[in-house]
Design a protein around this nucleic acid. Sequence first.
DNA 1: TTGATTTCTTAATGTAGATGAATGTGCTAT
DNA 2: ATAGCACATTCATCTACATTAAGAAATCAA
Lengths: 154, 154
Amino acid sequence: MKKFKKGEIIQYQGDVNTKVYYVEAGLLRSYTIDENGKEHIFMFAPEGWIVADSLPPDSPCELFIDALEDSMVKVVEKEDDTIEHNESKLIKRISVLQKRIIMLLSSSATERYEYFLDTYPNISQRIPQKMIASFIGITPQALSTLRNEKASRN
Amino acid sequence: MKKFKKGEIIQYQGDVNTKVYYVEAGLLRSYTIDENGKEHIFMFAPEGWIVADSLPPDSPCELFIDALEDSMVKVVEKEDDTIEHNESKLIKRISVLQKRIIMLLSSSATERYEYFLDTYPNISQRIPQKMIASFIGITPQALSTLRNEKASRN
DNA sequence: TTGATTTCTTAATGTAGATGAATGTGCTAT
DNA sequence: ATAGCACATTCATCTACATTAAGAAATCAA
């Protein structure tokens, strides 16, 4: 069990032999940085979630992982990991990714925002909005106006 | 081993107890249809590829699967399947999906088109362009103009 | 072959969301 | 307290891509 301070980077893009991270308390996220320096958040991992860069062994990883809050994390070597490398877990993970791809292909920013709220019901208060924007693939400004419209529809 | 005629639908959205399909010859695809009746292609599966709607058992599936060419397919029950449900295969699949999500979040239509050509090097001649457009998440018209620009840059 | 469908292209117009800049609102740290 | 900084909001402008429409080309069916 390891402690990570808010802001600490746990894994860098390009690292090899990456681990599997079980979040016991706190909040992690995984993300990439594109050639323009822009961050794109791949997933959030609050308490009870698992993060890992799922990759064939020995390939350099694509994702950064950092702590958005002070966190308690169980760090497990992929080979030693019996849970993550468990078929039904992996299949569930695939089905989540499948759903996200279909969202990105077919849904508007507003729908993707709703989808975010569904997927992570209680973390929208814990992270800056710009990160929500990054997760759903729009700018913070666009998210801001979108939320206004949503609020004024009531 | 089963034969499917071009155009034949192999699996419907909402089906349960879906199978794993090993494509020996021909070409399959998986896709959804959204509430506006628009198709969104999730993946193509030429010879040597595998298609399946990866889902927790007993949940209704999200994807249609059909044959884009006359095809020879090995159809395997998920429980009986030792290859698809093999960790390293599943992890490789996850890494492909991960890459696709990052593409969709961060790349322009042109870049996504290049990515399609990379991922499926030899099938762009075998399918209508509107399907490529659907895979990369743009309209056929946009793809048409994008290809013009690309061609005239040489 | 021929017509009928489907697909592709081109062009005009519309729009969601990006970009950039200005302003406001916290925090955090001295 | 106040300076500094990250974050949020608003607004004006811009742009990538959607939409609509209409004609050309390719494919299919009889």
